[in-house]
Design a protein around this nucleic acid. Structure first.
Lengths: 249, 249
DNA sequence: CAAGCAATTAACCAGTTGGTACATTACAGG
DNA sequence: CCTGTAATGTACCAACTGGTTAATTGCTTG
């Protein structure tokens, strides 16, 4: 058992005391970065702290010095991943958009954001295999995720007030649907493409999936009249789905 | 390296020669069953063949005798899981239903079927963490999953011909959407409920999710006029979403 | 019954793994 | 310059792990 956690709560501040050839914070940050990659790749039980230490060009001892044990390292990786992903979600400016485009934007952003952060998705997959055991130990993470729901909530409530959206959903449910479609796209790509071919993984396939996902969420949330009018109006890029008006004939 | 795989290709045939106190096929089947549970719970690298052997009340040697090595066992578990899940999907009789109810039935079945087989979902999650490496080695599994696509395809094509569905989708895409929503419900329940509370995991929450998922898929696939007419007509059980007619006013 | 073979057991092994004890280095403050 | 302390490197270990060797048991068949 190491004596105590060192003080540096903020990793990667390079203006700290240059205690060695490099400041300890960067060592800690490096361990975290490498561990994230290793654990995301091999899982908690599949990753080896020896390997992590080697890849950090530091000693195994350092990992235990900073993170206590393997689970401590994993917890730190989880929290850090959640935080860094959250921080990348800030600048969306959805309030400036009308509810429908705002929702479209959010869905598209979520979909693409997930697909651009496969390691984060993998960590969540792994954590789910562990039944959320380590997520449960972290108080930080619950706070970190509240904004995600609020984003949906604001859009949905505005859409309700302005008469675009159907009533009867919760923001949590909407977030769930958006997450499900965006998450699955990354999490199950391997098995899906292995079994059915990876036509949906190609650039075109992915564009179809984003477009469809957006459309799916919108069609679901919109009031019928708005749905029939709105959908298809801007769906000119894509092929058949989405027709210009209610009655094609 | 064990000499050769024993002949029994069909596990669990109990009428085999009663070679010992119990027939070897049941030993093999038992190993497979226990291994499925262990691997689904702890992952490939997280599970221990010692533990599996103990739980089987057999020796570790038997596992190597029947499955060669740990990966061989895992492959067998994967294939067996896919097969047994497939076999539970046969008796749906979707051909006797009109396209719209057929699709509804399929979605609802898929959703509930997934939630009733969490171990299978977990195995797929784990296999995806391995990037489908072992799935790629199995030829069986591709064949096993073809019917899933065909089921969707038949419904979709009938729906097209009879004028209910919009054109421009592939059966694979539709299957993807149905799978995504059904799979996510199981795969991410832990992390989701850990972060947002498990209101969606309760009995009522689940019923809302099934209903919404069905509705979402239908709204997406149906032609606008059918969508407005059909949706909500049988949506009397649930609360607000789904209104009786196109123009509520 | 002897031989051959499938099924099974128990002991064993070498490499790995998470984790630690202990010495050491470098800086900071007195 | 001396000492405390944060930071680090080295060597080490006990437990475990996947995997194996070799002997044994019971059935079947000639």
């Amino acid at each position: 058992m190491p004596k105590a956690e060192p003080e540096s709560t903020t990793p990667a501040r390079s203006t700290a005391r240059q205690g060695w050839k490099q400041d300890p914070a960067s060592v800690k940050a490096d361990i975290l970065k490498v561990a994230t990659g290793e654990i995301a790749t091999y899982g908690l039980s599949g990753s080896r702290i020896n390997v992590i230490a080697e890849k950090c060009k530091t000693s195994k001892r350092m990992i235990y010095y900073y993170f206590g044990d393997k689970e401590g390292l994993y917890r730190a990786v989880l929290e850090c991943a959640y935080e860094s992903v959250r921080s990348g979600e800030q600048d969306l400016k959805l309030d400036h958009l009308m509810p429908i485009p705002a929702l479209e934007t959010l869905v598209e952003f979520t979909f693409r954001h997930h697909s651009q952060h496969p390691d984060f998705i993998r960590l969540i997959m792994i954590e789910n295999v562990h039944n959320g055991k380590y997520l449960a130990q972290s108080e930080t993470i619950k706070e970190v995720n509240a904004p995600a729901i609020n984003r949906v909530k604001k859009i949905y409530e505005r859409g309700l007030q302005e008469g675009y959206f159907r009533e009867g959903f919760t923001a949590l449910e909407l977030h769930w649907y958006i997450s499900a479609l965006s998450f699955f796209n990354v999490s199950n790509r391997a098995s899906f493409s292995m079994v059915f071919g990876d036509s949906l993984g190609s650039a075109e396939g992915q564009e179809r999936l984003v477009a469809h996902t957006k459309e799916m969420i919108l069609r679901f949330v919109l009031k019928p009249d708005h749905a029939c009018r709105y959908i298809g109006a801007d769906r000119s890029e894509n092929g058949e789905p989405g027709r210009p008006a209610l009655n094609p004939a």
